[in-house]
Simulated scan of single mutants.
Amino acid sequence: MQPNYTIRRPTQAELSMLPAIEVAAAQLFLPTQHAFIATWPPATLDDLQAYFAWDGVWVAVDADAMPVGFALARIVDGEVYLSELDVHPDHGQRGVGRELIKAVAIWGKQQGYRHMSLLTFNDIAWNGLFYARLGFRALTAAECGPELTAIAQSHIAVGLPATARVAMLAELDQLVDLH
């Protein structure tokens, strides 16, 4: 990550800035087969507040201390679950997403967890392949716990194509050592 970014916990006031980052990041889906995602509403302030209360929000801020990316995580099936990762496209391709994942992994390890899971698209290079390069591996349906399975089913219920989704898992030790 370039030195003009910092990963930290957000302030309460910064939560209201995160939906705009999510909307901007969603525009990256426009040229893909999942363009409809660009029109979905972002996380609500209530949703973000819940993650904040769980201690599950991290922000990347630029040199002016303005949020440019964020990660949301919680505990699912007894392990860290990366619910969302968004980086404003103006700050993409600079290692910000990788550093957000590393921050979540450090927190998870400090809490005594061993793995991080997530759900993503397997047919977009900056989704599944990005996570695979960081050390995540695809899970079979049998390897998914009941809570992760329920989240995956809820994604399908709101219109995400089941055939394009993949559950992935990585060891926190590996993610903590990302460069």
Rank of each mutant, 00 (worst) to 15 (best):
D173S: 11
L85R: 01
D64C: 12
R133Y: 04
M168Y: 07
M116Y: 03
G78H: 04
L85M: 06
L45Y: 08
P146K: 10
Q93R: 14
D47M: 11
L82V: 10
G108W: 04
G128N: 01
F121L: 03
R133I: 01
V57P: 09
Y131L: 10
H115D: 13
E14L: 08
F136W: 08
P42Q: 08
I7M: 03
P41I: 03
N4Q: 09
L175R: 08
R165F: 02
F136T: 06
M66N: 14
N122Y: 01
R74M: 11
C144G: 07
V68M: 09
A152G: 13
L119F: 06
S117Y: 12
A132R: 12
L18S: 04
A65T: 10
C144R: 15
L100H: 02
V59Q: 03
L129K: 11
T32M: 06
D64Q: 15
A103C: 05
G135S: 03
V23L: 10
L30K: 15
G108C: 08
T11V: 08
T32C: 06
A25T: 01
N122F: 02
T149A: 14
F36C: 02
I156E: 11
L139R: 12
L72A: 08
H179R: 12
E84Q: 14
D62H: 04
R9L: 13
E79I: 10
P41D: 14
M168E: 13
G92R: 00
H91D: 10
Q93P: 00
T149K: 13
F136D: 10
K102I: 05
R74I: 00
L72M: 11
A63M: 05
P42Y: 08
I156K: 03
D86S: 15
Y81W: 10
D90M: 05
A25N: 05
P42D: 05
K102E: 02
N4Y: 07
P41R: 13
A162Q: 09
V96F: 03
Q49M: 05
N122A: 09
V176C: 15
L45R: 08
A150R: 12
T44F: 07
A157S: 13
T39Q: 15
L100Y: 01
V23G: 00
P41T: 12
L28E: 10
P41Y: 06
D86L: 00
D46L: 13
V57L: 07
A164D: 15
I21Q: 00
R133M: 03
Q110E: 15
A25P: 02
L82Q: 01
A71E: 00
A65D: 15
A53K: 11
I151P: 05
A24I: 06
A53Q: 13
P41V: 06
A20R: 08
A53Y: 01
H155A: 07
L134S: 07
I7N: 01
A152P: 00
D90S: 11
Q93I: 00
A105L: 07
A50P: 00
G95P: 00
A125S: 11
W58T: 01
L118F: 09
I37S: 02
A162S: 09
P19R: 05
